[in-house]
Write a protein that binds this DNA or RNA. Structure first.
Length: 213
DNA sequence: GACCAGGCACATC
DNA sequence: GATGTGCATGGT
């Protein structure tokens, strides 16, 4: 399994090069983006982030004091805007009540402890929690997403009904626990998914399949 | 106009 | 534990 995971990584890296993820200037911006991009195209999230940034709201203390309905209007382009405004507020509530609004303090927490805490916040599930840990906190945890599952199942590397945790464990127990590697690997998978695996029919002849067969 | 996008919570069986 | 549904905008 190590061999195939390594092989896929190398082929993807050759094909796409370093991705320089996550697209966000600060850890706080990365967290906001992680919540906004849930089941949503990144191009839509960019518009929402831009709105927040132009209002100087990508600062914990500022966002905390913004009314939820005003926040909802600003993030409208990202879709599910009322739901996501609430989720962002839920996170802010957690950040300030648990860590006094200090992201450095939050990320100073043990990775698995923090992961459990994040999963306790309404609106933060497995992928969002792991994205926050890896891309905002530089913690060595592997992020599994729809593309990861789709690509691995279509190429018969995992079973259809493999759980998030099983897939994550597949990567983490077979690869070194390395932040840069996990960062790059997930980003490369998303790139492959975006460019090639949009439809099932296309994926059957997609680049990855040609590369690994 | 249908279909999809870097999920998640909640209801129901 | 598995399966179904609501949430919503913008691009193809």
């Amino acid at each position: 399994m190590l061999r195939i995971l390594t092989y896929i990584y190398e082929r993807l890296f050759e094909a796409f090069g370093p991705r320089h993820w996550w697209p966000g200037e600060t850890p706080f911006e990365v967290i906001i983006g992680a919540i906004l991009t849930q089941n949503t195209a990144w191009t839509n999230v960019e518009k929402a982030i831009k709105n927040l940034k132009s209002n100087n709201l990508l600062i914990p203390e500022r966002l905390k004091h913004l009314p939820e309905d005003e926040l909802a209007e600003l993030i409208r382009p990202a879709g599910y805007y009322r739901l996501k405004a609430n989720r962002l507020k839920e996170f802010m509530e957690f950040l300030f009540s648990r860590y006094d609004g200090d992201l450095n303090r939050m990320f100073n927490q043990d990775m698995w402890e923090l992961r459990a805490e994040l999963l306790g916040v309404k609106g933060i599930g497995l992928e969002t929690a792991d994205s926050i840990l890896l891309y905002a906190g530089q913690k060595p945890i592997f992020v599994v997403d729809a593309y990861t599952r789709r690509i691995l199942t279509r190429h018969n590397i995992i079973d259809e009904k493999a759980s998030y945790t099983q897939i994550q464990d597949l990567f983490m127990s077979n690869l070194p626990q390395d932040v840069q590697l996990y960062n790059e690997y997930h980003a490369l998978i998303v790139q492959l998914g975006k460019e090639i695996c949009r439809s099932k029919s296309k994926c059957e002849i997609c680049t990855l399949k040609r590369l690994i067969t």
